[in-house]
Every structure is written in structure tokens, then in C-alpha cells.
């Protein structure tokens, strides 16, 4: 009960502050729509190729975009906490009895709220472009995105608190997100990939979440890929929360 109150406090403050500088939220909303408009049309022709996964090009492409969005939206949240650390706000909050888990979860929930808003805009725009998918499938997809975003955002905080410096965080985040994105079959399906490439990709948790979301969009709710992807996303979220809480607990130098 106390924990919930504390999470609520941190969440409310973070959300209020985000709304006061909404520029990056707007950029986050516009970006996926640009992908839809500028990249989506190219996929129509690709979808004719034999090894293209089941479903029409939008049913394949939009789940990937959702995952990409959860990666890009959440991977950079660590920058905010570095600013808070630098101006002493985080330190001031740490010298209160507030739970370290609440310091993390209040922030993560704000990130999830932003991510959900962006995802809904993306789905609405995709509908306008021609995506047709069942509502339960889309809700399952959003659930997977929430789990994934929780993991990514927690890990971003953990990394940021360890490094304590934007100039160290930026290159690491950039060099991790790019291969993770390419190896998750977001832009082009990995069914096109040679064996060695799909071998590397098979250790990428994002790949399983993309495939699970695709099954959900095809309303194949009992597919093995969906079960596997859900388990991977949940495990990833748990790992992130563990690392994130540890980082907030740690007494820094």
C-alpha cells in the first residue's frame, strides 16, 4: 500500500515534468508515422516474395514498428535521470525513506504511459494506411510492448546511474539499439536471412517479441511463437526491474 502511494508520487511528478517539456513526446509520436508513410509502401512489393511471413504487409510491418518504438522510446530515458542526478534532485530523494523500487517504478510507469500513447497513435495511423487486425490481437500486442518497454526503460536507468554521464551513455545506447533493431526482423523479416545471420538473431529477445506480436495480429492466439515471445518479454522485464532497482539502491560515489 505504502509502495503504491510512493510509486504514484514519483509517477505523478515525472509525468507532470514530461508534460511541461512535451517536445520529445511529440517527436516520438511523429516518428513512427513517418516510418509508416515513408517505408510502409515499399513493403507491398516485398510481401509478394515467397519467404515473406504470413499476413499482409501491414500485419507484418506494424508489429515490428511497435517493438521498434518501445526500444527507441525507452532506451533513452536514462538521460533524464542523469540530469536529475546532476542537479542533486535524485540525491535529495534518496535521502528520504522512500522505497528504491518506487523511485524506479514511478519513472518506468511514466515511460510506459508515453509509450502507450505513442503506440495508440501508431495503430490509429496504421489503420488509416490499411492495417486490419483484431482488437484482442492488438491488445495482446500492446501488452507485449509494455513488458518490453518496462525492461528497456529499467535497463536504461540502470546503465545511466552506473555511468552518470550523458557522453558515456549516448554511444552505448546507440551501439546497442542499432544491431538489436536490425536483428529483430523489424524492418525486413529474418526469414530472408542467411543461416549465420538468423543464428545470431536467435539470441535477441526482441526477435521473439516481434514474432509473438505478429501472431497476435493474425489472431493466432495459441501459436507457440506467441507463448514464447510472452515468456521472453516477461523475463526481460523482470531482468530490467532487478537491475534497475539495484542501481537505485546502490550508494553511488
Amino acid at each position: 500500500m505504502r509502495l503504491l502511494t510512493e510509486i504514484g508520487l514519483v509517477f505523478t511528478r515525472q509525468t507532470t515534468l514530461s508534460l511541461r517539456s512535451p517536445a520529445w513526446i511529440i517527436i516520438g509520436l511523429v516518428q513512427p508515422v513517418l516510418y509508416l508513410a515513408l517505408f510502409g509502401p515499399l513493403l507491398g512489393a516485398v510481401a509478394e516474395v515467397a519467404s515473406f511471413p504470413a499476413g499482409d504487409s501491414w500485419q507484418v510491418f506494424v508489429p515490428g514498428l511497435l517493438v521498434m518504438q518501445s526500444l527507441f522510446s525507452a532506451a533513452f530515458v536514462g538521460f533524464g535521470v542523469i540530469a536529475e542526478q546532476r542537479n542533486g534532485v535524485l540525491e535529495r530523494m534518496r535521502v528520504t525513506p522512500v522505497s528504491r523500487l518506487a523511485l524506479l517504478l514511478g519513472r518506468v510507469f511514466r515511460d510506459i504511459l508515453v509509450l502507450l500513447a505513442q503506440s495508440l497513435v501508431l495503430l490509429a495511423a496504421a489503420f488509416a494506411f490499411g492495417l486490419r487486425a483484431p482488437v484482442p490481437g492488438m491488445l495482446i500486442g500492446l501488452g507485449l510492448i509494455v513488458l518490453l518497454g518496462t525492461g528497456v526503460s529499467s535497463l536504461s536507468y540502470a546503465l545511466a546511474l552506473r555511468l552518470g554521464d550523458e557522453n558515456a551513455l549516448a554511444p552505448i545506447v546507440n551501439s546497442v539499439t542499432m544491431p538489436v533493431l536490425l536483428l529483430s526482423g523489424v524492418l525486413l523479416p529474418l526469414s530472408f536471412a542467411p543461416a549465420w545471420l538468423s543464428g545470431i538473431a536467435s539470441v535477441n529477445p526482441f526477435l521473439y517479441v516481434v514474432e509473438a506480436t505478429r501472431e497476435a495480429f493474425l489472431s493466432d492466439y495459441t501459436a507457440q511463437a506467441l507463448m514464447l515471445g510472452t515468456a521472453v518479454a516477461a523475463g526481460f522485464a523482470a531482468l530490467g526491474l532487478f537491475a534497475g532497482t539495484r542501481a537505485f539502491q546502490r550508494q553511488v560515489t
Partner: peptide
């Protein structure tokens, strides 16, 4: 933590 107040050298407030 619950029984001490701390005013750090760094500002500690969000602008």
C-alpha cells in the same frame, strides 16, 4: 533517512 534532513551543495531542485 527518515530522521535526518540533508541540504546538499548541489541545488537539489528541478528548475
Amino acid at each position: 533517512r527518515g530522521r535526518v534532513g540533508y541540504v546538499a551543495q548541489a541545488s537539489g531542485v528541478d528548475p
